[in-house]
Computed example of a mutant assay.
Amino acid sequence: MTLKKLTILPTGTEVLLPAGSPLTEVEYEIPQRLIPFGCRSGSCGACVIEVLEGFDSLGDPDHDELDFLEDLGRTGGDHRLACQCRLRGDATVRVADDT
């Protein structure tokens, strides 16, 4: 089993997950709730993350995710819904702020 590393800022917490794991697995690996997962279906926007490194390591966003991110004002290509991502390589993310 190949493990991939997800680094979550600002804490710098590193989580190792099997390649292809959904990011929702993070909440089972660490006691802190660093990514606020809500609905887990890509419709609430609670888990918007900014991808700082390894955007391609999270899989390709589908059309619905891109549309929803646009509705949330998160355009520009560096935001994702964490619940829709699968870790395929090392990545660094932080939860998007509300500003």
Rank of each mutant, 00 (worst) to 15 (best):
F37P: 04
G12W: 01
I35S: 00
C85R: 10
L66S: 08
I30C: 06
H63D: 13
G59S: 11
D90L: 08
F37Y: 09
T7L: 10
C44L: 09
D71N: 09
D64A: 15
L6E: 03
D71S: 12
E70V: 00
A91I: 03
T11A: 08
P18Q: 14
E53S: 03
L81F: 09
E65V: 13
K4M: 10
D64S: 14
G54A: 07
L69I: 01
T11G: 04
R86P: 06
G54P: 09
G54Q: 00
L52T: 08
T75V: 13
G73W: 13
L69M: 05
T11M: 10
E29F: 15
I35K: 03
Q84M: 15
L58N: 12
D56R: 15
G73C: 13
G45T: 03
R80A: 09
C85V: 04
D71G: 02
T24S: 10
I49W: 11
I30K: 04
D90R: 10
R80G: 06
G42R: 00
P36W: 13
G20R: 12
G73K: 12
E14W: 03
L66G: 00
K5T: 14
L66C: 07
G12R: 09
G59E: 12
D71P: 03
D78K: 15
V93F: 01
D98I: 08
Q32C: 02
T92L: 04
I30N: 03
C83F: 03
L81E: 01
L34W: 01
H79I: 00
R86V: 05
Q84P: 04
L72G: 05
H79V: 02
A91W: 09
D78F: 12
D71A: 13
P31G: 12
T92W: 05
C44F: 12
R94D: 03
G73M: 04
T92F: 05
F37V: 08
E70T: 08
I8W: 08
Y28W: 11
V26P: 05
I8A: 06
S57H: 14
D60N: 13
C83L: 05
M1L: 15
A46M: 11
D60C: 10
L81T: 04
G12F: 07
T24E: 05
V26A: 09
V51A: 00
L87D: 09
Q32Y: 14
